[in-house]
Simulated assay, not measured.
Amino acid sequence: MKEITLYSQPECPPCEVVKMFLNEHNVKYKELNIKEDDQARNYLITQLKSYSTPTITIGPEVITGFDLEALTAALNID
């Protein structure tokens, strides 16, 4: 399984939806709170070229926002 990282922040409804989706499908992921983790925030902006949460990395793939189709495809969920 590819490494999955969720970049999130407090009071982000789409972040909560992504977490529910991942948990519902028993997907293990690492969550990084960009409000508390400056290194994660900087990586999100400089390396992933994303300025919003949720941003999910699945191996080399980057998904910004709650994109159900992209998440389902990247995780091979039917």
Rank of each mutant, 00 (worst) to 15 (best):
I58Y: 09
C12F: 01
I77M: 07
T57H: 14
Q39F: 07
E31W: 02
N23G: 15
E11K: 03
K2E: 13
A70P: 01
A73D: 11
Y43L: 11
I77F: 11
E16I: 14
M20G: 08
Q47L: 09
P60M: 03
K30R: 14
L22K: 01
I45D: 02
I56S: 05
S8F: 12
F66L: 12
I77L: 15
V17F: 02
E11F: 01
T46C: 08
P14F: 03
T57W: 09
D37Y: 10
Q39N: 14
M1K: 04
V18W: 00
K19P: 07
Y51D: 06
A70Y: 05
C12M: 02
T57M: 11
Q39V: 15
I77N: 04
L44P: 01
Y43C: 03
T46Y: 10
V17K: 14
E36C: 05
T72Y: 05
E3V: 05
V18E: 00
L71A: 05
K49V: 00
L75Y: 08
A73E: 12
K2I: 05
D37H: 08
C15P: 02
P14V: 06
Q47G: 07
K28R: 12
M1E: 01
V62R: 12
F66C: 10
D37K: 05
M1T: 03
K2A: 13
T46K: 13
G59P: 13
T57G: 13
F66T: 10
L32S: 01
I34W: 03
D67W: 04
Y29S: 09
E3C: 02
L71I: 08
L6V: 15
D67V: 07
P10K: 00
C12S: 07
M1L: 08
F66I: 06
G65S: 07
Y43M: 07
V27Q: 00
L22S: 08
M1W: 01
I34D: 06
E61W: 04
L32W: 03
S50G: 03
E31Q: 11
P54N: 15
T53V: 15
C15I: 07
Q47R: 10
S8D: 01
D67R: 15
C15S: 04
T72C: 02
N23A: 14
L32V: 03
D38S: 04
A70M: 09
T5I: 01
I56R: 14
N23T: 13
R41A: 11
V62L: 03
M20N: 12
G65Y: 06
Q47P: 03
R41P: 06
T5E: 00
D38G: 04
N33V: 05
Y51W: 12
L75C: 11
Q9C: 01
C12V: 00
P54M: 13
Y29N: 06
E24G: 08
A73W: 05
L32H: 02
E61S: 08
T5C: 00
K35S: 14
S52P: 04
T53S: 10
G65T: 07
K2Q: 15
N26W: 04
T5M: 02
A73G: 04
F21K: 09
I58A: 11
P14M: 07
Y43E: 02
L48Y: 05
I63G: 08
Y29L: 05
I4S: 07
Q47I: 10
L75K: 07
P54F: 14
D78R: 11
C12Y: 01
P13K: 08
Y51T: 13
L75E: 13
A74Q: 05
Y43N: 08
D37E: 10
Y7N: 08
N33K: 10
